[in-house]
Amino acid sequence: MDVFMKGLSKAKEGVVAAAEKTKQGVAEAAGKTKEGVLYVGSKTKEGVVHGVATVAEKTKEQVTNVGGAVVTGVTAVAQKTVEGAGSIAAATGFVKKDQLGKNEEGAPQEGILEDMPVDPDNEAYEMPSEEGYQDYEPEA
């Protein structure tokens, strides 16, 4: 019985440690998101679009440190934060509304985080759909 109880105690310690790591990862992701939003706020009209992409990228980098179902929630929060940063930029006159959601080359930025393969159960990952990809044929 002692062996059984000791095993359960060790398992509990492992769960607590994993929860603490997840909590730490979420806190880091939130900190990076805040950094990115402050970065966007300090940019001029020309830099705002690039700044919004930076927020998304920093958040995406930190999301990889967070495991399990938390990833889905962090990704949703990050996307809403990026959308909010863009709205703030438009409201303050840093950028025109028609410039939001495009990178410096004018290509749409939507789907940055949505296409990231995420499995809350950590069982399997699927690649994003290939609808947006084109076949590449090298020139002879």
Rank of each mutant, 00 (worst) to 15 (best):
D2S: 04
Q99H: 11
K12E: 00
Y39R: 13
K60S: 03
P108R: 07
F4C: 02
K102S: 01
A29G: 04
G36A: 15
Q24N: 11
V48K: 00
K102Q: 01
E105S: 08
K45N: 02
T33L: 06
G67F: 04
Q24Y: 15
A69R: 14
V15K: 00
G106C: 14
E105N: 13
M1L: 00
T54I: 13
T44V: 08
G132D: 12
V55T: 02
Q99M: 10
E57A: 11
K43I: 15
V71G: 02
E131N: 08
Q109T: 04
D121T: 13
K45F: 04
D135I: 07
D115H: 09
E20R: 03
Q24L: 04
V118W: 02
Y125P: 14
Q24T: 10
A30K: 03
P117F: 05
V77G: 04
K34I: 15
D121G: 12
T44Q: 01
G7H: 04
G47F: 15
M127D: 06
K10G: 01
E105D: 12
G93P: 04
E123P: 10
E131H: 05
A27R: 12
L8S: 00
K34G: 03
V52P: 01
G14R: 12
S87Y: 04
T72F: 02
V16H: 06
G47T: 15
A17F: 03
D119L: 06
I88A: 02
G68I: 14
K43L: 04
L113E: 14
G25C: 12
V26G: 01
D119H: 04
G36H: 14
A69C: 13
E13M: 11
S42V: 08
K60T: 02
E137P: 05
Q134R: 10
S42T: 09
E105V: 09
E46F: 03
T92K: 04
A124R: 07
V37P: 00
G51H: 13
E139C: 03
E35D: 14
Y125C: 09
N122Y: 11
L100Y: 01
K102Y: 01
V48P: 00
F4A: 00
K60C: 09
D98W: 14
P108F: 10
G31H: 08
L38C: 09
V74Y: 10
A27M: 11
V52Q: 01
K60I: 07
V74F: 11
G67M: 15
V3R: 14
A91P: 04
V49G: 04
V16T: 05
E20P: 00
E137C: 08
E46A: 11
A69W: 11
T54N: 07
S9G: 13
T54E: 02
S9D: 03
E104D: 09
K102E: 08
E35G: 05
E130G: 11
G31C: 01
P120W: 03
E20N: 07
K80T: 04
A124Y: 05
G86E: 09
V74S: 01
G31N: 13
D2L: 13
K58M: 12
P108G: 07
V63R: 03
K60Y: 13
G41Y: 12
E28R: 12
D119S: 04
F4R: 00
F94G: 01
V118I: 07
N65Q: 07
K43S: 03
A19H: 11
A30P: 01
K12W: 13
L8H: 00
K80G: 03
N122W: 06
G101F: 12
S9M: 15
K102G: 01
V3Y: 03
D121M: 10
V48N: 00
V70G: 01
A140P: 09
S87D: 13
G67V: 09
V16G: 06
S9Y: 15
A107E: 07
A69Q: 09
Y136V: 06
I112W: 06
Y133K: 05
T54W: 13
G132Y: 09
V118N: 14
G106H: 04
A140M: 08
P120S: 08
E61K: 13
T81Q: 02
Q62H: 10
E126M: 07
V118K: 12
L113H: 15
K23R: 12
V49L: 15
G25P: 01
E114N: 12
E110H: 02
G36Y: 08
E139K: 08
A19I: 04
Q62S: 04
V63I: 15
M1Y: 00
K97V: 13
V26R: 00
V66C: 05
T54G: 06
M1C: 00
T72V: 09
A56D: 00
G84H: 04
E104R: 15
G86T: 06
P128Y: 04
K45Q: 03
L8D: 00
A90H: 13
D98M: 15
G73W: 04
T22L: 04
V63C: 02
E110T: 15
S129N: 04
E123C: 14
Q99A: 13
P138D: 07
Q109P: 02
P128T: 06
A85T: 13
V82W: 15
M116G: 06
S129Y: 12
A107G: 14
E130T: 14
Q109M: 03
V71S: 04
E105M: 15
Y39H: 03
A29F: 14
G101R: 11
Q24H: 11
T64M: 03
E61I: 08
E35T: 07
E126W: 03
A76E: 04
E114P: 07
K34H: 06
G7W: 15
S42N: 11
A78K: 13
G7P: 03
E131G: 02
E13S: 02
V26I: 14
V15I: 09
T92E: 02
V95W: 09
E131D: 12
N103R: 10
M1I: 00
V3T: 00
A29L: 09
K12V: 14
S9Q: 12
Q62A: 06
Q109I: 05
K58C: 14
L113R: 12
E28T: 14
V48S: 01
E123R: 03
G84D: 03
A91M: 12
Q24G: 04
Y133E: 11
T72M: 14
I88R: 03
F94A: 10
V40P: 00
P128A: 06
K97I: 10
D119G: 09
L38Q: 05
Q62G: 05
E28A: 08
G93Q: 04
L100A: 10
T64L: 11
Y125I: 13
K34T: 05
G93E: 06
E83K: 04
P138L: 04
L100I: 07
K102N: 15
E13Y: 04
I112P: 12
N65C: 14
G51Y: 14
A91F: 13
P138R: 07
K97Y: 12
E57M: 07
Q109R: 14
A56N: 02
E131F: 03
A30L: 15
V37W: 09
N103T: 08
G51A: 12
E57I: 12
I112R: 12
A85Y: 13
V63D: 00
V74P: 01
S87R: 04
V37T: 01
E137F: 05
Y133L: 13
F94Y: 10
V16N: 05
Q109L: 02
A53E: 11
V40S: 01
E61T: 11
G41V: 11
V26L: 12
T44W: 15
Q99G: 13
V66M: 10
V37I: 06
E123N: 13
G41T: 12
T75G: 11
G51W: 13
P120E: 09
